[in-house]
Design a protein around this nucleic acid. Structure first.
Lengths: 363, 363
DNA sequence: TGAATATTTTTGTATAGACAAATAGACATT
DNA sequence: AATGTCTATTTGTCTATACAAAAATATTCA
């Protein structure tokens, strides 16, 4: 190693750069002693003060550590990675649906890995999501769990790119985005809806109404499962009792749709609500109209939300586990897994309560 | 300023300390030029290299900034505060009760102030709380919102001290801790319970059962309000229908207690549930036993939890606002408000639904 | 053998002096 | 008025030297 005395770059800086390269290229590894100041003096022909300046700067930056009488040693710069122990979660609203359960599963798993969780509510708005993404990047999160919004796939992609540009791994939870290679965790929505629909059919229901929003990937799958089950049982689909474009969840809008549906009750004997919150609205509207469940019609939901006080037969989704698995994927990416994007599909299972009437004898 | 040449503490360190004190005591303010190296040399009698070492260290630490030809200036250490834009929230369980609403209010307000929110679930366990506190401190949060656990005031204090030792402001939300000077936000639990009890009395109820846990500060206040209302209406308290030591919320335990209470139904015409989750259990146990509300007995709750599908008359607590106000208190502390500890009391209001029967004619 | 002591090495602290580089501000030039 | 040049000042870089302090190692002594 030669110091260029005529270079405009300071000699201490030349030495400092040289040492840093050695460390970063792994030539000088953690714990290894670098030459003593005297030796460096002989090597470079520089005065000890100059050498001290170079080494001192690297000590300040955390690359080296000096030990009196023993020498100067290479330090593992674990500080940086140690500081970055935060994961972000972008969720539409922590108050709604399964969000608390998901957040809890994620946080518990994060805690196991000594990580913290930053909670961001997007309200399905691009502006808010962007704003949060910006701050998450500034906070140097080491990974992000995203529940894609139902509004625009394009916008979701933009958000994802904000992170991937900075090499921050992203995992999608529950919902997916088409045509994008990214780790994601879902449940078997098709199979679940198939099972749930078959359950209704087995209990003698042939006129099964359904209400959900096709625009959301999970509900789209459920609609497919519903149709497949009907088809396999040779039941023709009746489009008048299929509301598949209900749009993103909006209390009032759904109330209206459901009032409309319950208006011509002769057309169905059971209602498949796209998820439990829809089922709750169906229940309350039915109550309003003086109808009782399952006597006047049967009702099933999807999710198995906690703290639901009605006896709703529904598909239990392993939301807590979804949070856990999402975080595990993030952790494996953080630890440098370079494998292709992975998909984890968890299994939902039917929870039988008492919102479905057995109509078999009526057949 | 005199350097003690015979002191065992290095002279550069003496100078460095002196300069730092000047800055931290505000004698040398942001932007002010400190004496030039030459002047410091004359002042202290030290060699320039020694002075450079002292000043250099402070430059490294970010206290000073050197400008060639111009001199050395005091730097506002805003980097740190700029990076620290994270608030922690310690909550028993994000899934339960009003936690999501509180988290949402907090997060929205934090976003307004360009801050992020780290969510920590403690499960009311000291071990978990300590663990989270540790990591929040390492993550350099600039403030913490704590929902005290019901288990032990001592333990809560320990957690608070972990933060205050590091000058991290703490705000208590909802529940309070006695004998501790700290910012907190609550609702008027006494007045609310008084109003709610009076409401029942006005509707002809004189035998009002209550179930809650006195160990939780909020519920203790509610019990007092309940008793005050009874007293003011000259209704003697019947201890056989007062369950005030139900302990921290535990689904199964409460189910048992409520089954016991509903066993001797002649003793009361209304039940005051300490909070909505208790009310939901009362409702479902009543349902199990074939009782209907409000026909067989009346029921009121406290909280006004969202997504409750029964028509429960209850006190609406401004939980979202509580989250907002808590965060505002934190922000004012961050901005250096040194005032004495503050208490914000928000107002709850009665939400009349249909779980209370008007018994007035029966009197 | 084991404890006390001395030696040696390496970083830590400190001095004195020199020239380089940047630049605000004064001054000169176009 | 705009631009270029000079100057003084301050920090930036660098050398050479000296003694201090810590600590591993060798040596001495009881």
């Amino acid at each position: 190693m030669i110091i260029n005395k005529s270079s405009p770059v300071p000699q201490y800086f030349q030495l400092q750069t040289w040492l840093m390269e050695q460390i970063e290229q792994g030539i000088l590894k953690h714990g290894v002693q670098i030459p003593t100041e005297k030796e460096l003096g002989e090597l470079t022909g520089l005065a000890r003060a100059t050498i001290r300046q170079a080494v001192g700067n690297l000590v300040n930056k955390g690359y080296l550590i000096r030990k009196r009488r023993l020498g100067t040693f290479v330090q593992d710069r674990q500080n940086e990675t140690e500081k970055r122990t935060i994961i972000g979660i972008l969720i539409p609203d922590i108050r709604s649906g399964y969000a608390p359960e998901l957040a809890r599963g994620t946080e518990d798993e994060a805690a196991k890995h000594q990580h913290s969780l930053i909670l961001c509510n997007t309200d399905d708005l691009y502006m808010k999501a962007e704003h949060h993404a910006d701050r998450l990047i500034k906070a140097a999160v080491s990974g992000v769990i995203l529940i894609p919004t139902s509004h625009s796939y394009e916008k979701n992609r933009l958000i994802i790119e904000m992170f991937t540009k900075k090499d921050i791994p992203v995992v999608l939870a529950d919902r997916t985005i088409p045509e994008i290679e990214i780790d994601h965790v879902t449940t078997n929505n098709f199979d679940g809806a198939y099972e749930l629909t078959s359950y209704l059919i087995q209990r003698g229901h042939r006129k099964i109404a359904i209400i959900l929003s096709e625009r959301i990937s999970t509900e789209k799958e459920r609609l497919k499962g519903y149709r497949a089950a009907l088809g396999d049982h040779d039941i023709p689909s009746d489009s008048s009792i299929v509301i598949s474009d209900a749009g993103p969840f909006d209390q009032e809008h759904y109330q209206e749709l459901i009032r409309g549906l319950l208006g011509h009750r002769g057309d169905f004997t059971a209602v498949f609500a796209g998820h439990d919150r829809i089922a709750l609205i169906v229940y309350s509207i039915a109550h309003e109209m003086g109808l009782t469940i399952p006597d006047d019609f049967s009702l099933v939901g999807y999710d198995d939300l906690p703290y639901v006080s009605i006896k709703l037969t529904t598909m239990h989704q392993p939301i807590y586990e979804m949070g856990q698995e999402s975080l595990k994927l993030i952790m494996s990416r953080i630890q440098g897994d370079g494998v292709a994007s992975r998909e984890i599909v968890l299994k939902a299972h039917l929870v039988e309560r008492s919102s479905v009437r057995n109509n078999e004898m009526n057949l």
